[in-house]
Design a protein around this nucleic acid. Structure first.
Lengths: 203, 203, 203, 203
DNA sequence: TATGAATGAGTGTTCATTCAT
DNA sequence: AATGAATGAACACTCATTCAT
């Protein structure tokens, strides 16, 4: 009814903020455009002036999700001295991240779908940045003789990331299944996992 | 129109085969009854003579998926002597399994969702059997002094499984994303992963 | 599997007995052929050897329902001396009947559907018999000077029946709505209704 | 294909009009959304922009049904002087109402079913209003000594309503069954019924 | 006669996307 | 740019009825 005028940037941030809330409250499974426009108090058609389709909007959210992940990794690495400790911190912070933004974790998994065929160059660039960051830590460790060199730093980086995701998903599904939060054993598992990884990459 | 008669066993296997294909081609997200009946060339109602609902059909597929996995694990462990080698073989065979039955991996994840509320006692029993099998290998290794004891065999089993799933999913999504099969580096990654895990759990 | 042989009469009574139970337990709304064959332990196709379709089966049940109603009316009238008292007893026994066979009441209403287009000659004949029975009571009352004559005995009979059905349905829906059985006021209502009718038809 | 634009008010009235026709022609048992959209020549999804679900649509029809009924009662009562005459007019106007809006009668019955779980506060309020209106007429008659006092005005109101519904349904089913309109005897029946009721409640 | 596997036209509901205004 | 009414393809599931054996 009321015709709101706003700069494109503002409007887009308004939409993404609403989308963020919807994702937070409903999860990716029940994320719908209708719920987003309800939140954002804008018309349905307006969304499509800013996003080609739903997936493009999710990619935008995904970008935010990766940003937060990168920031988590930076914080985690910051306090550590040795490269191995840094890797361990990264493993642990993957889980911390999931605890704080479980929906973002879901979203990142969701975006791996093979039929997610939109322009995600920004997303991929950021994804690369995260990889580079971890890669840098690993390569440094290899140079300093802390981390074994029979695998390329790339490979080690991928393995660390893949295992971290796997462990978090495992914990997630088990917690959902059991419907109670047995935080203790989860913490033990994360700790055991981190140590296993660091031991596995050490010289 | 044309009424095709068949033994219940044949018809059920026909449906499962069609469902397998649909899962393989479309992924769990786009797995629908309509697509299954299209493939199986049967009427809609027929499906419901064999399965109470969609989830029960998926549970049947899931059971098959776990059976194949267990069988893969058994084969893999069979040829190994030391416990650590057995664990390594399990890690590698997770990927082999994925190569043969890629569709089953996401199905297993899907069935973990908390609202999957059908009778899955058979499925869960088999799931437990797999866990027990791996657990047995790990516990044996601990007794023989091959595997470290600061983590319970349960915990190690879970971590191995979670990491294996993570690595396979990673490989899967990267391959689908890049749409070319760089089998070599994948093989390297699986090898590196297996060695990292075995090193991580060794004394 | 096992081929049961039986006389057609026995088989039909077996089906109708099962159907009766299904109607009793599920109500007309959830009355299905599947549930009947489950109960009767016979094959689906067999039903259609004895009944052209579902409605014909219901008509058979409906016949039974009317039989019980007629029997209720006979019992009710039996104890009364004056015609007016007989009419009052009929009004009351309509409700008694509903209390004992609520599903039969539903069924009778259901069979009034305009698209209930099957051969119901038996049903209609019995329906006529009930009408005749009431009509006889009314006509007798008119002859004896107990019941007013400005309306034909037919008309009075119809009105009595129609009002009785209406009152029972009203009580039924109110009880279902309120979900508690306030038997007292219901009894009062039935009593009030019966008296109102008898007063209405008296000279 | 062709996108027809209309004001919401028009579209809603268009849907209701179509629904009215479907109810009239098919009866509540065969009232489906598909038939409504067929009639209204709109897309399926459009219905759900105006009604949350089927029951809400029926509730809207039901509200309209009660409105017309109340209006009929008001008109009927308007011309009468004595309370007893007013009651008689109400009985007769029930039938008039049915003649004008035959489809609404079964709808009102249908909405009494206990699993009708939508917000019907408006409907129930209106229903109460009708009851109050009749109740007022009866209570007035009791005060003036025209109507007997051995039953509460509430009870009498309910009985009048229940009997009226019963008689209308009886006439309806008989007419449909015989498929010819013997308007004369129907009129006689309504007249007889009204007089029977008024006689029944008089002092 | 008996069987029960097979059929397929519904049934209500969802939701991403389009497009006339 | 903004609106929001309109669209229609999906979707899981039901059940009376048919018919080859």
């Amino acid at each position: 009814m009321v015709r709101k005028r706003a700069t494109p940037e503002f409007r887009k941030s308004q939409i993404i903020a609403a989308a963020d809330l919807v994702l937070l409250e409903m999860g990716i499974e029940h994320f719908t455009i209708d719920r987003v426009i309800d939140r954002a108090k804008i018309a349905k058609g307006t969304v499509y002036n800013y996003y080609k389709n739903k997936d493009e909007m999710l990619a935008d959210l995904g970008y935010k999700a990766l940003s937060m992940l990168l920031s988590h990794f930076h914080t985690a690495v910051g306090g550590q001295k040795s490269s191995v400790e840094k890797v361990k911190a990264i493993c642990k912070s993957s889980y911390d991240y999931y605890r704080v933004y479980p929906q973002y974790f879901e979203l990142i998994s969701y975006m791996e779908r093979p039929d997610f065929e939109i322009n995600m160059s920004n997303y991929l660039k950021l994804s690369q940045e995260i990889t580079n960051m971890v890669n840098h830590v690993v390569a440094e460790g290899q140079e300093k003789g802390e981390i074994k060199k029979d695998l390329s730093s790339d490979m080690i980086t991928y393995i660390i990331w893949a295992c971290s995701v796997g462990v978090v998903q495992f914990v997630e599904s088990k917690e959902k299944l059991l419907k109670n939060h047995h935080e203790i054993s989860t913490q033990q598992m994360i700790k055991g996992f981190s140590e296993m990884i660091t031991k596995g990459i050490s010289l």
